[in-house]
């Protein structure tokens, strides 16, 4: 049900524009999940504003029957901050990519996160520049061979969720384009959060970086390679649910066997998304994906006042404390009369 009481379904969020991503692109799945989640949450399309930057992912607003603003490269979080400050009643979502959000727009992203502006940021990470036809991105693995790095990239990549945690984000999650139900769940959790919610979404670019995540998303290996982090539950994974991830005192990750001949499930620390200390989340975010399972889910969700709430309340207090007519304002301090 929408706030206006009309029951909505997925197609109510579809715009009349043809979707122009390459066939097979992971963006389709994400679009589908967003529309499904919005329908479930009963979002009012008239109150929803989706703001994007530049890149394949940033075409997203055109395909949604909400308000949309396809801005300039990297600047979506800044524009969204202004829109949310100017009208906190709007439901503002930012769609960005690894190039848009972490390279040219990295500065705006980290500042939005630290301010905790009430916008939801979906970062589609395909570890490549798609729209400019295949250059390495700030999340491409070292040694990536692309048109701009024929001998392999030298740069060391970002891990977006670690960057978000480093920017003191209050909500950090990760999901995957092909895991629709999980992604929908993450979108709902983000929606409930006060302040900036950051979701990294692993997205396959089948044209320029096909199979970037196949080593852990293929159906056959998925249970052993993906760790679904859930609040209040230990970090257990595996087809048999008999493996667990834990951290030593020095925050070194370890994989242990649960049950028979291993540790007891009850001895494992349950994950706490509300932990004010972000060290464990950071350790989880920085796991080496070749050796350890890949964590998805909500890593962190702490309570902190949204930026626009603080700004709006300062204004309300100022208005309560001082009323001044325009004439009084213009007259100001010392004046004199000429006759």
């Amino acid at each position: 049900m929408s706030s206006s009481g009309v029951s909505l379904n997925k197609k109510d969020y579809k715009s009349d524009q043809d979707v122009r991503w390459c066939p097979g692109c992971g963006d389709y799945g994400i679009l589908n999940s967003v529309q499904a989640a919005f329908a479930d949450m009963g979002k009012d399309p008239a109150k929803t504003l989706i703001i994007s930057g530049i890149g394949c992912s940033s075409r997203f607003p055109y395909y949604m029957n909400t308000y949309g603003f396809h801005t300039i490269h990297g600047r979506a979080p800044a524009l969204a901050t202004g829109a949310k400050l100017a009208n906190p009643d709007l439901d503002v979502w930012v769609v960005t990519g690894d190039g848009d959000g972490l390279s040219i727009g990295g500065n705006h992203l980290i500042h939005a996160l630290r301010r905790n502006v009430g916008v939801k940021v979906l970062l589609f990470n395909n570890r490549i520049y798609g729209l400019t036809k295949g250059q390495y991105s700030p999340t491409s693995e070292q040694g990536k061979m692309t048109k701009s790095t024929p001998l392999g990239s030298v740069d060391f990549p970002f891990k977006p969720i670690a960057l978000a945690l480093g920017a003191r984000a209050s909500f950090v999650a990760r999901s995957i384009d092909i895991m629709g139900k999980h992604l929908e769940e993450m979108l709902k959790r983000a929606d409930e959060h006060e302040g900036t919610a950051f979701i990294e979404i692993y997205q396959n670019c089948n044209i320029f970086n096909d199979g970037a995540y196949a080593s852990f998303t293929e159906k056959a290996v998925r249970p052993n390679r993906i760790l679904e982090v859930e609040h209040g539950k230990p970090l257990i994974f595996g087809a048999e649910r008999n493996q667990a991830l834990r951290f030593t005192e020095n925050l070194e990750p370890q994989i242990v066997k649960v049950g028979e001949g291993g540790v007891d499930a009850g001895d494992l620390l349950p994950w706490d998304v509300h932990n004010p200390n972000s060290a464990l989340a950071m350790a989880l975010a920085n796991l080496d994906e070749a050796q350890f399972p890949v964590p998805i889910g909500v890593l962190r969700s702490i309570s902190r006042q949204a930026y626009e709430t603080g700004v709006t309340s300062q204004i309300a207090i100022a208005q309560e404390r001082k009323t001044e007519t325009l004439d009084e304002l213009l007259t100001g301090g010392e004046t004199w009369e000429v006759k």
Partner: peptide, 9 residues
């Protein structure tokens, strides 16, 4: 950009 966002709304 923030000013433009505000203008839009």
């Amino acid at each position: 950009c923030a000013a433009i966002g505000a203008s839009y709304v």
